[in-house]
Design a binder for these strands. Sequence first.
RNA 1: GGCCCUAUCGUCUAUCGGUUAGGACGUCGCCUUCUCAAGGCGAAAAGCGCGGUUCGAUUCCGCGUAGGGUCACCA
Length: 445
Amino acid sequence: MNNKKVVVRFPPSPTGLFHIGNARTFLFNYLFAKQNNGQIVFRLEDTDKERSKEEYAEDIIENLKWLGIEPDFRTTIKQSERTQIYKKYIEKLLAEDKAYLSKEETVKGGQRTEVIRFRNPNKKIVFNDLIRGDIEFDTTELKDFVIAKSLEEPIYHLAVVIDDFEMKITHILRGDDGISNTPRQILIQEAIGAPRPIYAHLPMMLAPDKTKLSKRKHGEQVSVSYYKEKGYLPEAVINFLAMVGWNPGTDQEIWSMDELIKVFDIAKVQKKGAIFNIEKLNWLNREYLLKIPFEEQFSIFNFQFSKTKWGRSEKAKDKIFIEKLLKIILERIHRWAEVREILEKGEFDYLFEKSKLDKEKICWKKQNPKDAKENLEKILEILDNSQISDIWKLSEKEGKGEVLWPLRYTLSGREKSPDPMTLIDILGIPESKERIKKAIEKLKN
RNA sequence: GGCCCUAUCGUCUAUCGGUUAGGACGUCGCCUUCUCAAGGCGAAAAGCGCGGUUCGAUUCCGCGUAGGGUCACCA
């Protein structure tokens, strides 16, 4: 490609929570920089004083750390602190008559002010894109565009070009919504004598409605912090993001960051926008969830559990119980916050308190209540005097549904639940017996 | 609307002129000790249209069509 040291940039503007699409763009920059031993410049584009907020900058940095795609924060730069630098360039452009002061009404006020416009040479610009090849624009349609509101207030395009020049950025990998910005930025580069960096416009990540992911239309799911809160794992999010719009060409689905750095190939990046498929993220996240060592699973689970309505119950102190609960719940979640969600919904309330039984439902299909009662009595007998596994023998003799369904329903009060042996195990024999007795009473009437 | 970009299963994608068009998610079916869940096995499911180029096009070119992006004194 070229033998200069690769320098890429992360240039978010802190006007909102860290956007998931931005995270993917950053990831691609990160992978590209790392595999080329390059440098990553982090630059806060906060020239819009009205919309830029410190809390957003913090959210971006925090989530970059969470995802593990940290730039070199020693090189963090804020555009708001560089006005004097931009001013020098603006003055030079003015002096060389490549830009001029234009007296006109402000868009908002209506007051007579000055604005600085770029003297457009009105020519054709062709630039090469690593992903799309040559792209041609006629810049005439851009007119004499504004590059600064005043000497101290540069507009985005100017600030970006100056910064990329001064920071010796070699590669600009950005979303393809930046394609149409490229010609005017090239015009500015040429005016200030900056070399042209290598461009690569990445396809956008789209919502299921095929439009750009936006907070307004698509809600909080566009923020990286949403995924952290919902209990997704950063490794899974990274893996997923990398595979949207890019593919190494193999059938492998699970990739670690180190593997991605090795195998990433910018030439294989897709050209078309890709829909963010949360179903696949969920699947992937579960794969990662299952790979976590048990001790760690336990502590995360315990933390989630402590925040539920049962978090302060007696059961919460019972480690063995929590372990068994983890086993049941882990089978039905894709992300950690679902532990809370499932428990709050009351799906497992019967493990904490007795539930009401419906006499009809104790019986399996068209089973006679008397038979159901007899089977439950036999189970009681087994629990008192024999091995629990004898319940299997009983079910083989009397019919699986006829034995297992009444037992399971009796223990859970639900038509759907884990199997009865698991329930006896988690409830304990004394509690199980109580519930069975209750059901037998019910069937007598 | 102007300009720009894009076009393989519902979705993410493989294919770099010759393939029974492959994989994954999801969906559906079957199996797995009653119901779930998890797991196993299996199935359905795609080259936008029309012209070229070529012995041969999903693949290359053109034109349509469709979708997206962008048109600020926002970034």
